[in-house]
Nucleic acid binder design. Sequence first.
DNA 1: TTGTAAGCGTTATCAA
DNA 2: TTGATAACGCTTACAA
Lengths: 357, 357
Amino acid sequence: MSTSPHSHNTLAAVPAARPTIADVARVAGVSKATVSRFLNHRDKLLTKDIATRVEVAIAALAYSPSPMAQALKRGRSRLIGLVVADVTNPFSVAVLRGAEKACQDAGYLLMLFNLGNDSRRESEAIEALTAYQVEGFILNTLGRDAKAAAEAARHGKPVVLVDRRHPGMQADFVSLDNAGAVRLGASHLVEAGYRELLFISEPVKNVSSREEREAAFRAFISESAPAVAGLQGRTFEHTADDPQALDAALRDLRQRAGPRLPGVLSSNAVVTLRVVAAMARLGWQFGTDVGLVGFDDTEWSPYIGPGLSTIAQPTDELGRIAAGCLIERLKGLELPPRQILLSGRLVPRGSSVHAVN
Amino acid sequence: MSTSPHSHNTLAAVPAARPTIADVARVAGVSKATVSRFLNHRDKLLTKDIATRVEVAIAALAYSPSPMAQALKRGRSRLIGLVVADVTNPFSVAVLRGAEKACQDAGYLLMLFNLGNDSRRESEAIEALTAYQVEGFILNTLGRDAKAAAEAARHGKPVVLVDRRHPGMQADFVSLDNAGAVRLGASHLVEAGYRELLFISEPVKNVSSREEREAAFRAFISESAPAVAGLQGRTFEHTADDPQALDAALRDLRQRAGPRLPGVLSSNAVVTLRVVAAMARLGWQFGTDVGLVGFDDTEWSPYIGPGLSTIAQPTDELGRIAAGCLIERLKGLELPPRQILLSGRLVPRGSSVHAVN
DNA sequence: TTGTAAGCGTTATCAA
DNA sequence: TTGATAACGCTTACAA
């Protein structure tokens, strides 16, 4: 059995440095500038002969330019920064997925920064990402930290906001059409016969998507109440740490409903899951005891109780479009900030059907 | 109302270039080298007077060094590449989360590349990431593409494998203790009275974690059968596109069981969800008609049917440890490849309880 | 059409 | 202990 000289360290093989533009130049017998021209202006400025010589050299060495060096010189890094409030949130993941796809297609790489639900770290994220010369930002964060917005603007890099607006930030905004989606869900509940409605959300204040959904719910109720006998609606804010408050809210709901059917509109998947837990604690059945429509159509929605009715968001699209907007800006598009709102889709299931027994 | 010269473009504010080391040097009245020394060797080599002058200049300009320039010079980028087979997979997200945390603590930034379940893109990912000078890799991929492994090794950068081994790759490996976890789940089913067991997995071949789990299941059966009257076990491979095959497999299972209780061990959350769907199609109840223990404890597990019994993976730890291993290597640790196996935890719920009615 | 040389923001070598 | 200066890999005037 033969032993190699450094057999104690088998992890790292030979260094194998990447070939540089100088290597290519040497092999092709031309100057670095010529190679660079070939790379950037293709064959516009080059003799066919030289061009092919460079081409074969590049192929032979499997050369590809160093983005870091390019970034240093050009100030452009082909990097896009994505800041998400919480990677654990399926919505954020979906955005990430969509954005990643679009970025890759356009030759950009995504740099992820996850806040882990700590909003205060938002400007830290922007800072770190700008240090790496990201060319722009996609922000899917709460938008509570005005400093972060200012930070991004100060660097003069384009920003696209997803799902949550930031106060006073001039930026493209891509989101679900919250008003429309709420109407979709609420009117579905009404059509299914539910009359005493409760909108349940995480703390609303200063989070634009939550504010919009709550406002839309209130608007729906006051618009529809005149035409729908017995229609009433309230809102309830729920925080993670207080399950009993939720139980109480549901009991109240049912009591207020009296002979009318009580229905819940939950503002996202997290809240939906909490409602599911509360219903289990109360021993109640979806549809029959309380109707439910929840934002976000998850993979598990069909299998909870009689199936949960949901409002599906075009999450993938959202991410793709957000990245698309950003890339357009990077290509030089100058336009006032755009708002792109995509429609939700109602997915009716058993939780919004009152079983007549 | 006053109008600024370029009021049609309000998106990008003033350029506001980052201060460079030269700016700091000028303000402090020293040379760039001195500033660099202050940054890298702190006050080891500097006069107290000069050191403080540099310090205040840095603070005044809010200077921080450009990682890109540092990378170019040092060859070190403070970047770690994370390649995941599928960001949609909650397991991958958990790893991402854990890894991100550890990286941030150590001053690294994570660069994500998502294969979107297309294994063939693995070497593309490695390529792209090395172009950006990532210092090492965390790979949570199928490990089917041997080329990718070779690729990473060729660049001589340390690699940590998570959950799936790669054939012939010398690298640290961080994973659930699959054998132990399978034993945990299977013996729980047996203790709960289930005797005709079925292990359901996605296609096993060439995916190490699946192979290990299946092998452990077979081993468990043959070890336990002598001591447990009537114990039998089989395995079943299921692909996404064929729900009917799954229905048939479950019917077979129940028929084979006869008077004995049939139990399923599903190899991950995706499979579990498919089993859930099949049970719904068949109109069967968990626990009673078929017992179930599934890998991966998800947020929805408690709320499906009577609650799904699961084997929880220490996902966060897995990610943190993986990143930790990599960072140790980057700090120069030379050791033969390590294997770090973490134990799963059984979370018993209703799906593994046979209701005696 | 091609080559030379300077410079992007750092760090490292060498003198002073 | 500090300061010029060269170099990292690339792009881009400017010259030839």
